[in-house]
Design a binder for these strands. Sequence first.
DNA 1: TTATAATATTATGATATTCTAATATAAAAT
DNA 2: ATTTTATATTAGAATATCATAATATTATAA
Lengths: 93, 93
Amino acid sequence: MSKIDYIKTSEIFKALSNPIRLQMVDFLLDDECCVTDVVNELGISQSASSQHLSILKNSGIVYPEKHGTRTCYKVNNKLTEEIITLLKKINND
Amino acid sequence: MSKIDYIKTSEIFKALSNPIRLQMVDFLLDDECCVTDVVNELGISQSASSQHLSILKNSGIVYPEKHGTRTCYKVNNKLTEEIITLLKKINND
DNA sequence: TTATAATATTATGATATTCTAATATAAAAT
DNA sequence: ATTTTATATTAGAATATCATAATATTATAA
């Protein structure tokens, strides 16, 4: 049982505090995908998609893998993954 | 395994996306306390404390119990409690 | 080598957050 | 009844967020 790093942890929550980014993470966990896939799946603009992915990247939740002209973002944060699992398990009351 | 309500869930994360409020929740889970205790524990102003507690209340994370002139805030959200447990279990990487 | 496709960046306006300072309310004590 | 204690609310300034529109970058294709 470790102490909570409130600053570091709150930054993760800040990244997840937007419904689009939350949906992005959920989508990226299922189907690791490039930006265009995210754009199509979520129905948002390319620019907004890129900016949201950048926020997730800067908070250490996802990382990009370049494949030619495409970029594939993958979730890379244990806390985030466990939280998504938790969200699917319990009915958020 | 239920679907995630991204909007509702992101509102919880927004409430937890501030280090002070995160520490508040952690503190309230251990020692259920009145506003003055929170003020003393966290070393913030009475007004800021009250406003942060109000945000936690409005997001359904805590609820107030009036005892005379004091108000005791208690954590009342399963997701939040499980997340705090998770945070203490894993080393946020 | 130019055109195209995929993604990133920047600027900007609208809105939201958060702090401090000041004031208000409500219960208990004097 | 007035004062004190605990808490809440409001106003305002500084800063942050977010969407859109426009432009830049970079890798491949033609």
